[in-house]
């Protein structure tokens, strides 16, 4: 290593003289580059490229997956999906879940980030660690534990009872009027930490002298927040928004383990809907073709949302300049 570093300067001067054999080497390097890309591209082709393309074919089959025989039914699965009120219920719930979680994620995490970002807050890292902790824990296991904590005998009912807010326990996850609310709340708790880290990364990228200049002008804290912090966070904010929207529409682990889509489909989202048709016998024989069609329908919806959002943000940026 030491030798390598010390010869840097000499090599730098020599590099200009050594132009001729370069072409051969670039050719060779190009082959090496593709060799280095090969493992990633192979896995990509197998587990992303192929599934995306094959889904369209699967979606046109009437197929249980248990036996090799399948019948080609064309667009029939898509038509059946579009006709199924339970699919639209799940579709609606996915968006309810998204609209319930995303604003909380963004706003609460931003407020916490601003609080924790204050200079001179010595325990900032410690608080950050606490808030981040749920993020690294296994979602499916957290879901199971939450069934007890939010259950009739759990800590939530007990505390609310002792505080005099409730006079009888609520079955938070088992009661159709509360279940979606509870699932959203727990999901916000689980994922808030990631957004906190995102916002903190954004705050750290704002140059400090901007605030110092504002201090000289005698600007108040709220003015600084709305005139410096917020505008400068918009670029990173749009990325955070997009990540949250896509992730919340994909949510599966928490809902599967806490409510399994129930009670009476009140928290049934598209991912649990698809799982039910593809991998359980709750609806009779598994229907892989039908489930593929439902999955594609929703995947396309998400991609369209992602594209619209990036176009809108580009327009907005263009307008500002």
């Amino acid at each position: 290593m030491k030798n390598t570093v010390s010869s840097i300067t000499t090599t730098a001067t020599r590099a200009t003289e050594k132009r001729k054999p370069r072409k051969k080497r670039t050719m060779k390097n190009e082959v090496w580059c593709w060799l280095f890309l090969a493992p990633t591209l192979l896995l990509f082709a197998m587990f992303q490229g192929w599934p995306i393309m094959a889904s369209w074919y699967y979606a046109m089959l009437d197929w249980s997956g248990l036996t090799p025989d399948s019948t080609f039914v064309g667009m029939q699965n898509f038509i059946n999906v579009a006709k199924d009120p339970y699919f639209w219920n799940a579709f609606k719930n996915s968006f309810k879940f998204m609209l319930g979680t995303v604003p909380f994620h963004l706003i609460i995490a931003l407020v916490l980030a601003v609080i924790l970002h204050r200079p001179g807050l010595k325990a900032s890292n410690l608080f950050r660690t606490f808030i981040f902790l749920p993020v690294v824990t296994t979602t499916s296991i957290v879901g199971i534990i939450m069934v007890f904590i939010w259950g009739s005998d759990g800590a939530v009912n007990d505390s609310l009872f002792k505080l005099g807010i409730l006079d009888q326990p609520i079955n938070w996850l088992g009661d159709a009027t509360w279940s979606m609310f509870t699932v959203i709340l727990i999901s916000v708790w689980k994922n808030l930490g990631v957004n906190l880290i995102y916002w903190l990364a954004g705050l750290q990228s704002i140059p400090k002298d901007l605030y110092e200049a504002a201090d000289v002008d005698g600007a108040s804290g709220t003015r600084k927040f709305f005139h410096i912090t917020v505008p400068l966070l918009i670029p990173i904010g749009t990325i955070i928004l997009l990540l949250n929207v896509v992730n919340s529409l994909k949510a599966f682990d928490l809902i599967k383990t806490m409510t399994n889509g129930g009670p009476f489909f009140a928290t049934d989202v598209v991912s649990t809907y698809i799982y039910r048709y593809a991998f359980t016998s709750e609806m009779g024989l598994p229907q892989l073709g039908y489930a593929s069609a439902a999955g594609l329908f929703f995947a396309v919806t998400i991609i369209i949302i992602a594209i619209i959002q990036s176009i809108v943000t580009k327009r907005m940026k263009g307008g500002n300049q």
Partner: peptide, 12 residues
């Protein structure tokens, strides 16, 4: 931005 969760049947 492609939600692979919804193309899981071919993976299976």
């Amino acid at each position: 931005f492609v939600p692979m969760e919804f193309a899981i049947i071919p993976i299976y």
